[in-house]
Computed example of a mutant assay.
Amino acid sequence: MSWQGILFVEHQGEIVGGGQFSLLALMQHLRNYQPHCATGGTGTMTAAVRALDIDVEVISMPPIRPGRIFAVWRCVWDIYRMARKRDVVLLHANGSRCMFYAGLAAKFLRLPVCWHVRINDSDGWWDRLLAGWATCIVVVSPAVAQRFAHLDVGAKVRIIYNGVDLEVFAHGDRAVSRARWGWGDRPVVGMVAQLIPLKRHDIFIAAAALLAPRFPEAVFAIVGSEPDPAQGYEALLRSQVAELGLEERVVFTGFCDDAPGLFAAFDIAVLTSENEAFGRVLIEAMAADKPVVATEFGGALEIVVPGQTGLLVPIGDARATADAVGSLLADSDRARALGVAGRERARAKFSIEAHVAQVEALYVEMLKR
Rank of each mutant, 00 (worst) to 15 (best):
G5H: 13
E10Y: 03
H11D: 03
H11F: 11
Q12Y: 11
I15R: 00
G18D: 09
G19N: 00
F21C: 10
L26G: 01
L26V: 11
L30Y: 06
R31Q: 11
N32D: 15
P35L: 06
C37D: 04
C37V: 15
M45T: 06
T46Y: 08
A47Q: 14
A47Y: 03
R50D: 09
V56E: 00
E57N: 09
V58T: 11
I59C: 00
W73T: 10
D78W: 01
Y80V: 08
R84I: 13
D87E: 13
G95C: 10
F100D: 00
F100R: 00
A102Y: 15
A102L: 12
L104Q: 05
A106H: 09
W115Q: 05
V117C: 07
D123E: 14
L129W: 14
L130T: 05
A131T: 00
A134D: 10
A134G: 10
C136P: 07
P142Q: 03
P142D: 06
P142I: 11
A143Y: 04
A143I: 09
A143Q: 03
A145W: 05
R147V: 04
L151Q: 01
A155C: 05
R158I: 10
D165L: 13
F169N: 03
A170N: 01
R178E: 06
R186Q: 12
P187F: 03
V188S: 06
V188E: 08
V189Y: 00
L195M: 15
I196G: 03
H201V: 04
I203T: 09
I203M: 08
I205L: 06
A207V: 01
A209N: 10
L210R: 14
A212L: 13
R214H: 14
F215S: 05
F220Y: 13
A221M: 08
A235I: 07
L236T: 14
L237Q: 04
R238V: 06
V241K: 00
R249A: 08
V250Q: 06
V250I: 15
G254T: 07
F255R: 15
T272A: 07
G279P: 07
V281G: 04
A285K: 01
M286K: 03
G298V: 05
E302Q: 14
I303T: 04
P306S: 03
G310Y: 11
L311Y: 02
L312K: 02
A320L: 01
A322R: 01
A324Q: 07
V325E: 08
S327Q: 14
D333C: 04
R334H: 10
A337G: 09
G342M: 07
R345G: 01
R347T: 12
A348V: 08
K349E: 15
K349Q: 14
F350R: 07
S351K: 01
V356A: 02
A357K: 10
V359S: 07
A361L: 12
L362H: 13
V364W: 12
V364N: 11
M366F: 03
